[in-house]
Design a protein around this nucleic acid. Structure first.
Lengths: 210, 210
DNA sequence: GACAACATACCAACCGGTTGGTAGTTCCCC
DNA sequence: GGGGAACTACCAACCGGTTGGTATGTTGTC
């Protein structure tokens, strides 16, 4: 054994490629990213790429699952879960998402949202993998939303609200990319927050608390 | 003069290409659409393409402007302008947008939103052209929004609300594409409508009408 | 020595773009 | 009003580079 035994072992080519894919595809888009681009960015050869993935499409699907895993871990250890009240957790989640809008759009935008626009009609496998990403994350919010809905007598469903949050975020990312300005995304998230404040504060919503 | 003098003259290659671009690029994405694809769809040759556009990038920018023009015309003759009250016009606009969610995502989604995701970092010319599209349409709503804001004592700006509408729509399109289901987009627009209802009905919003 | 994990070299198809050309129209000078 | 130069609109064939993918090694490990 020539190397020192360190805990941070050199990541495999597969992991290097997947991490590179999440980064470059969010920068350039899926179609514009060539297999050579990915290999160069990951520091591996084309042989390694096609050893681990049987096609570029296969990589895109695997990267979607990888995206789900990394984001799942990120949100699992986020502080918004700490609040005792369900609605507090929901609002803290929105604030957490707001706080993530930092740096370049490529770093805070969504892999699935980027890829699905280019593939939804030509590649159902990738499209479904991308929807699974978004849906899985939305579902992770449903428990808190359902509890807040029950407590505050709101007539929306947890599923619908969770998906609407994702829609606003995706749209906010697009506007940020188009204007090359992150503030425009933050503004939309603020509008979303205000929607939730009004929806859940229920300031005698036409006297019909359902 | 050998031909009959008809009003509907054969569209030029340039127009055929631009129309084809709006259609195919929304289906396949910008990078995945080759110049040959465009020529085939438009029924013209590559020579004609490069006679009218100096590059594929040039076509993308021209198509963005073409998109602005066609949508401008479409919304100019939409019925939501008829209402006497400004807030009624705003709400009717949202309902109009809701009603446009028909058929395939490629037919109701936005050229600019699709293209900008693939080009925002690699091609500033295209990115700016796409933002101009979105901004121009958002600005067309600002007069009605400003009037409704003034009448109802709302503390948001017309610009911010107009852009938020566009963000929600863009996000709704993405979710529709991902789920391959237009209802998910309609649901988000319904949430947006509810936000506007609550924002403008001002049911003693914490007693601070600004 | 078997097998996974890579690396090297290569391929046909396709990519955006260029070429040299033609048909028709417009313009201008006589 | 006739002729020709200049111009626009378009076309088919072609070009070098890049594409996703493959075939065939080589290397390290159990």
């Amino acid at each position: 054994m020539s190397d020192v035994q360190v805990l941070a072992k050199r990541p495999s080519a597969r992991e290097l490629i997947l991490d590179a894919a999440l980064r470059i595809v969010r920068e350039q888009g899926y179609s514009a990213t060539s297999v050579d681009d990915l290999c160069r960015a990951a520091g591996v050869t084309k042989g390694a790429f096609f050893h681990h993935f049987k096609s570029k499409e296969d990589l895109a699907v695997a990267a979607a699952k990888h995206w789900t895993q990394t984001t799942e871990a990120k949100f699992a250890r986020a502080p918004y879960h700490q609040h005792a009240d369900a609605l507090d957790r929901v609002m803290a989640y929105l604030d957490f998402r707001r706080g993530l809008i930092r740096g370049e759009p490529a770093t805070f935008s969504c892999y699935a949202g980027t890829v699905v626009q280019e593939t939804y009609q030509t590649n159902p496998l990738i499209r479904d993998a991308c929807f699974d990403c978004v849906e899985a994350h939305a579902q992770s919010l449903e428990a808190d939303l359902a509890e807040a809905i029950a407590t505050h007598g709101v007539s929306e469903t947890a599923e619908s609200l969770a998906l609407h949050i994702q829609a606003v975020l995706q749209g906010a990312f697009i506007l940020s990319k188009a204007k090359n300005d992150r503030q425009i995304a933050i503004d939309s998230i603020d509008h979303l927050r205000r929607y939730f404040e009004m929806l859940f504060n229920t300031p005698n919503r036409e006297e019909i608390p359902s």
